[in-house]
Every structure is written in C-alpha cells, then in structure tokens.
Amino acid sequence: MIHHLVRRLGLGVVTLLLISFLVYGLIRSIPGTPLTVVVSQTDPSRRLNPADLERMKAAYGLDKPWYQAYFIWLTNVAQGDLGRSISRKAPVTELISKRVGPTLALSTGSLLLTWLLSIPLGIYAAARSGRGDERAVSLVLYMLYSVPTFVAALALQVTFSLWAEGTPWELPLFGMTSGGPHAGTAAWLADVGRHAILPLICQTYVSLAWYTRFINTNLQEVLRQDYIRTARAKGAGTIRVMVHHAFRNTLIPLVTLLGLSLPALLGGSVIIEQIFSWPGMGRLFFESLRERDYPTIMGLTLLFSLLTLAGQLLADLLYAWVDPRVSME
C-alpha cells in the first residue's frame, strides 16, 4: 500500500515537471510578450523606445532564453514562490487565492446539485427502463446535453434579465454582486446567491444529463447480473435491489468520475465565468493567457496539473475502498 503510494507520488512529480516544462515552452512561443500586449492596450499610438523595452525585458527576466527562464521559475517554485504577475502587479498566489472562493462556490454547488439530482434520476430511469416516463426523461436530458453552454447561457440571460425585467423573476445579468455596500453578511450572501443562480444552472445542466445517463447505463448493466436475480429470489423488494444491491455496484465507476472532477472543481469553467463575468479561476486563466502573463499562467497550470494527479490518486484509493476485489498490494 505504502509502496504503491510512494511509486505514484514519484511518478506524479516526474509528470508535473514534464507538463510544466512543455507548457512553459509553448506559452513562450505564442507571439507577443506581456510587455507588447500591455503597451498595445494602454497606448496603441505610442511607440515604445527600444532602449526602454530592453530595460523592461531585463527587469522581468524576458531577455533570457525560455529554457533558462524555466529553470529560474522552477527554482523559485521549489522554494514556494510562484512569482509576481507581470500585468497585474501582484503575487500570483494572491491572485489565485482571491479567485478560488468564487470558483469553488460555483463548482461545488454545481457538483452537489448534479449528484443530488442525477443519482435519484439515474436510479429512477433504470428502474423504469423502456417505459414512457423514462423515455421522456431521457429524451429531455439528451436534448439538454446537446445544447452548448453559451447558447443556454444566452437563453437564460434573455429570459431572466430581459423578459423578466421588473418582475420578481428578474435575475442579475452578470457579476458576483451588484456592488455597493451590503447591510451585513446575510444581505451579501443573498446578493451573491441571486447572481449565482444562472451560472449555476448553466454549469449543472450538462453534467446532470451526463451523470444521469452514466448512472442509468451502468445500473442497467448491473441489473442484468446474476446476483441481482439472487437478491430478488431472496425476497428483496425493488427499492432494496436498486439502491442496496445495484447502486452499490455502480459506485465503482462513479468514484473514477469523482476523482476526475477534482481539477474542474478548482479550475472552474472558462466559458461560464467569462459569459457571466464571474470572478473565478477560469476567467483568470483566460485573461492571463490574453495578457501573456507567464507567471500567472504557469502558476495556474501547476495547480491544475497537481489537482489532476491528486484526483487520479484519489480515484485509485476510492476504487479500492468501494470494490473489495481491488487490492493495492
């Protein structure tokens, strides 16, 4: 068990090094640097003095070749320093820690909602397989699954912000708060809650359709197994067969999914956060890419890779926990 863990961790470190090296090389090859992008945005008419540009390059370490710069970055990371953002004039860790909260709020909310709805829906669909109501539910879910997020987001915005304007159904179009001072924490929470509704729906509906389908198909496969017949012959009722005997077996593929969803939990959704101007990690990633903000991009890449690897390890451990046939030895 411990041997297995050590091996996995060792492999994880090697993977991280490879990913960060490749990503660093790639982002340094994108045309434009943090300096050219910033200058073109602040003052497109002005041409920077070449001497000034060289000075600034040296100050940010951009005068060195990228592989050299990578090792400097790596040495700093090893000492716990992710560097300072070039475009935002703040430490990367500070930028990330500000954005984690909003993303977590949205993603954990969405994940909880997805699981709470998809597990009963999936079990229900499997139990009623082939009947009219199950087909209707499956059809609706399949249609939802086919709708792109940005289309759904626009439809929601049109419905709840434009059509519902002035009615109690009106919901804010974007942002996390309406701004301005809030009368206490409760008022602030209520304001954030109202802003979160539309992005939450957007982030949930696709995964809801996907998870329900996943649970349904897996359950149907399990229900064909001989041990389900044995359970029924023992006198177990439909609900006990579905929930106790069958669902427990579909947990095995489900935990893999849980592990894989860990990076998305902190990574956030670039599209949804962008559309709803939600100040989260996905938006930070998108913006830092646009600004060629190398330290921030690298900091986020490192975090996402770490989470991906941790998620896989978590899935492995959960796997052994839910399936007695799997052993770590």
Partner: peptide, 25 residues
Amino acid sequence: LRTIRGGRIGMIFQEPMTSLNPVFT
C-alpha cells in the same frame, strides 16, 4: 410474493461464480 421468495421457497442458481454480490461480505 416477496414473503414467499426466500421465505417459503428458496432458490439456488446455476452460476455460483456470479450469483453473489461482489461488494458485500
């Protein structure tokens, strides 16, 4: 019927390898 199944009438099957639920003792 459920009180009959496993209560008054017990049943055993052909495939002992797959007739037991793998995740319970």
